[in-house]
Simulated assay, not measured.
Amino acid sequence: MARIVVLGNIARDEVIHLDHRLREGAHLQGTPPAARLGGGGANTAIALAHAGHEVSLVAAVGTDPLADELLAELSRYGVDIGPVTRISGPTTRSLVLLDPEGERTIVNLTRARESRSPRRLLDLGADCVYVRSNGQNLAGLLREKAALCPIVAQIRPLEEGHLPVQILIGSHGDLDTRFLADPLAESRKLAGDVLRWVVITHGGEGAEAFGIGGERLRATAPDVPVVDTTGAGDSFAAGLTHALALGLDMTQALPLAVRWGAAKVSRMGSFLDRDAVREVLRESTGRSSPNRP
């Protein structure tokens, strides 16, 4: 398997199950909060570790007892927590409001965020890097790392030149009409000449990828029951990173990533458990490539 570095966050998710969907002015009933490990960095790192990769997580936690609990849990899942740093203050906590249809709304309660770019990323050997962070200006750091290995990154922040990476991922629902009208041109503004692909996810409809050579790929999501959408994007990113780290091309990586995302929404939790990852990998054997429109 591969060496993968994930740059992202670690959080305690406090999940409240609602009796109805959120709507303005409503008075809803909810369950008492149930705590579980979460955060985009942790969700992605755990899924990749379950796939057998050697995964290191670059993140920040606070100096409270919660940090010790979350780090111990990550370590039990096989994630290297050596690159995690502690900063004064509380660890990230998020309130997750989950409606009966599995859709989630996230409210950040506290945030542990480094004020400087995590230069330690350059000291970590990697076959691939995944970045899910908008807390710092990472442009210089990513430019150096992209010269050494492929980097997959979430499109945010939307600032020109701030994401010099080979593959960008964004959710259709998070992007404005101008970006969606020409994803490749807009992504070039963020990534520059290093860009190779931009991937746009469409929830239950699947995903599409645009290549700098004019390629356009589509992968349709399987029809699955929606139980919990928390971490679906993180699972999609884990699947894509997994495939690219193994040297698969985008025609193979995109449908695999879609199946990872679909597997997550059909299960409760913030990340894919070990059995779910193994199941989706078994199901992926022998699957066909995505359709070209």
Rank of each mutant, 00 (worst) to 15 (best):
E101I: 02
V226C: 10
S289K: 12
R292C: 09
W260M: 14
L95W: 05
S171C: 08
T91M: 05
V277L: 08
R178N: 09
P83R: 07
D228I: 11
L256H: 05
N137W: 14
M250C: 00
V224K: 07
E186C: 10
R3W: 03
L190Q: 06
D80C: 14
A49R: 11
P290A: 11
A67H: 02
M250P: 01
W197D: 11
S88C: 04
P33A: 09
S75G: 13
P83E: 01
E101A: 15
T241V: 09
L122S: 13
A191M: 09
E14Y: 06
A243H: 00
G170A: 09
D68W: 03
V227K: 01
A67Q: 08
R156T: 06
V6K: 01
V198L: 02
R76A: 14
Q252Y: 09
E279N: 10
A59G: 08
H172A: 08
L272P: 13
A185V: 11
E283A: 15
G40R: 00
G102C: 08
D64M: 10
L184D: 03
V152Y: 04
D174G: 05
G239H: 00
D176C: 04
T91H: 03
S266F: 06
R216Y: 02
V198H: 05
R188E: 10
A221C: 02
L122E: 14
G203E: 01
E215K: 07
V15T: 11
G82Y: 00
G25H: 10
A257N: 03
G140C: 03
G41P: 11
L7R: 06
W197N: 09
A112P: 08
N9H: 14
A35T: 12
D19E: 04
G38A: 14
E205C: 13
H17G: 08
G286Q: 04
A11G: 13
G40V: 06
V15H: 04
D13Q: 07
W197I: 05
I87L: 15
F210L: 01
I167W: 07
A26W: 10
W260T: 05
D13W: 12
D13S: 09
R267L: 15
A11L: 12
G211L: 07
L142G: 07
P164G: 12
L256K: 07
Q29S: 15
G125L: 07
C149L: 06
L22V: 08
R93N: 12
I155L: 13
V258L: 02
D80F: 07
L244T: 13
R188M: 08
L121M: 01
I212P: 01
A221I: 02
E215P: 14
S117L: 12
E54A: 14
E160D: 15
K145D: 04
A34L: 10
L175M: 12
T241E: 04
A34S: 10
Q166K: 07
S284V: 01
R12V: 15
P118D: 04
L184Q: 00
A34N: 06
R267F: 06
S187G: 09
D223I: 15
V96L: 13
P222V: 09
L148E: 15
E14Q: 15
D123I: 08
Y77N: 11
L184P: 04
R113G: 07
P225L: 11
L256E: 02
G231I: 04
